[in-house]
Structure formats: C-alpha cells, structure tokens
C-alpha cells in the first residue's frame, strides 16, 4: 500500500498528464451524453471513473478511443490533441481498452486474441505475407513470444490454445485485459473489468491490476461499480453524474462527499 502511494505522489510532480480531457461534450442525436467533463490521468496513476448508470462513463471511454466523436472540448495524450486521429490510430498512440460487454473474438484461441493486441506493432504488412514469407514468419514468432509473456504474467498461459468462447466469463475479461497489455499502451482504459467476479476474485483481480501497473509504470483509467475495488485500488477518483463532473479526489474524500452520496442514493444533489 505504501509503495503505491509513493508512486502516485512522485508522479504528482510530473507536469503533463498522460491523458487530459478538458470540457468534453458528446451528443447522440438530441441526447446530451456528456457535457463539459474533464478528466486527467498522470503517469503511473490508477484513476477510477464512477457514477450511477447512464452517467456517461462508457461514452467518455468511447470519446477517448474516438469511437464516439465529441463536439466541443479537447482530449490530449501526452500533451498532443487526438482530434486528427482515426479510431484505428488510437492503439498505436498508446491507448488500449477493454469493452463493457466484452470485445473478444470468441471463435479464436486465447493466444490469437492476445496476439491481435500486437497487431499495430507486428501487423498490417500485406505484401510481405506473399513476397517475403520468411520475414512474416519471424514477425509472427516475435508476436507469439510477446503474447505468451503477457499471458504468463496474467496467469493464463495454460489456456493459451483454448478457444476464447469456451472460457468462463471472468477469464474472458482477463484475456481482454491481456490483449490490451499486449499492445504496450501508455494508458489502459478498463470498462467494468470486475463484472461477474466473486468477492474473493475481485480482491485477487485488484492485486493483479496493481502488479501489472507497477511492472510497466502504466496509467489506468478504471470504470467499475465494485466500490471496494475502486476505493482500494485507485489513487484518484472521478465521479460522473448525468453526463457531468460531480466530484474528483482521493478515495477517502469521495467516500465522504455529500454530493456523491446523494447521487448514489438517488436523492437530489
């Protein structure tokens, strides 16, 4: 616990956040999904993003990965705005994510799924597969070694050749995180990664995320409903409510924040 604190405190001095979103608004048709929300995540920091259903948490992740386009505001990665980037560029810029309702390929093996995480580094060389099979073979081996390393770190090496669809749900979620890690991101966006886990599993999962973060000095933005996990794991927490910033601060501050408590209990804030 102490070690983690020192990581976050030392990173407080870093001037530039890895991810900085300022006054971001997203509209779907006539619905205002996000209005002027601001979020920043520093290097090596785990930030929680919480809020009642419909608060716009997933929409915010979609905005950061360009799956949803935002009308106003800016999102910057390491100080560079992402407005000009396409959806497919984001992973190469260092943003990897998981999806709320699983974004895995059920008919592929676990290893293949995780190797897809390395696509932006190893892949996309179409002509090479035909005209230089030796070199694409070498790339394939390199990608496999890397994916296996991540799978070992996540404790999933023994299921590498299993078809992903045959795994139990919590392992599928973990595999999706492994795939995101295989992309070697600067920031990892996790959308309800602990969904479907039992109480004991949640605790173990929290330790795993913390270990992964430390070994890579990774920034993480975590959407999660499991309060125990969020409070125990996160350095800072952002609270959204009805598409707006409601509160921001350290876990203990959030716990005692009147506005947050009333939003969660459904009273008028």
């Amino acid at each position: 616990m102490d070690g983690r604190k020192s990581v976050s405190e030392s990173s407080l001095n870093v001037a530039q956040p890895v991810l900085q979103a300022r006054d971001v608004s997203v509209q779907f048709g006539g619905v205002q999904a996000l209005s002027d929300v601001s979020v920043s995540v520093r290097a090596g920091e785990i930030c929680g993003l919480i809020g009642p259903n419909g608060a716009g948490k997933s929409t915010f992740l979609n905005a950061v990965t360009r799956l949803a386009s935002y009308g106003t505001g800016t999102i910057m990665l390491d100080g560079t705005p992402i407005e000009g980037a396409k959806v497919r560029d984001m992973i190469g810029l260092g943003v990897a994510r998981t999806f709320q309702n699983l974004g895995i390929y059920a008919s592929m093996t676990v290893l293949e799924n995780v190797m897809l995480g390395g696509h932006h580094q190893f892949g996309g060389r179409f002509a090479q597969t035909i005209f230089n099979p030796m070199s694409s073979g070498a790339r394939e081996r390199a990608a496999r070694v890397k994916a296996m390393t991540v799978l070992e770190e996540m404790g999933m090496a023994d299921v590498a050749n299993t078809i992903a669809g045959a795994l139990p749900y919590p392992l599928q979620k973990r595999m999706e995180i492994a795939r995101a890690l295989a992309a070697e991101p600067k920031i990892l966006l996790l959308d309800e990664p602990a969904g479907g886990l039992t109480h004991g599993e949640v605790h173990e999962f929290g330790e795993l995320v913390d270990k992964v973060r430390r070994s890579r000095n990774l920034s993480i933005l975590l959407i999660e409903h499991h309060m125990g996990l969020v409070m125990g794991l996160c350095d800072r927490i952002f609270v959204f409510h009805l598409g707006r910033n409601l509160a921001e601060g350290k876990p203990e501050e959030i716990k005692s924040n009147e506005a947050v408590i009333s939003a969660y209990l459904g009273r008028a804030a």
């Binding site: 990965t65 799956l67 959806v87 497919r88 560029d89 984001m90 992973i91 190469g92 994510r97 999806f99 974004g103 390929y105 059920a106 008919s107 592929m108 293949e112 190797m115 897809l116 995480g117 390395g118 696509h119 932006h120 190893f122 892949g123 996309g124 060389r125 179409f126 597969t129 035909i130 099979p133 694409s136 073979g137 790339r139 394939e140 990608a143 795939r179 992309a183």
Partner: peptide
C-alpha cells in the same frame, strides 16, 4: 500465405466484429 499470421487474423477479426478490429488498429 495470405491467411498466415497477423494478416489472416486481422482478416478474421474484421469479419467477426469490425468495430473491435478497428479499435485494435486494423485498417
């Protein structure tokens, strides 16, 4: 050859779910 390795995987990935494939950097 065309189905080997990453290129074949990317091809199957965009078939099974184009949006996720795009988020993974598949052109």
């Amino acid at each position: 050859l065309m189905l080997f390795g990453d290129v074949g995987r990317a091809l199957r990935a965009q078939r099974d779910n184009a949006q996720i494939a795009e988020a993974l950097g598949v052109n």
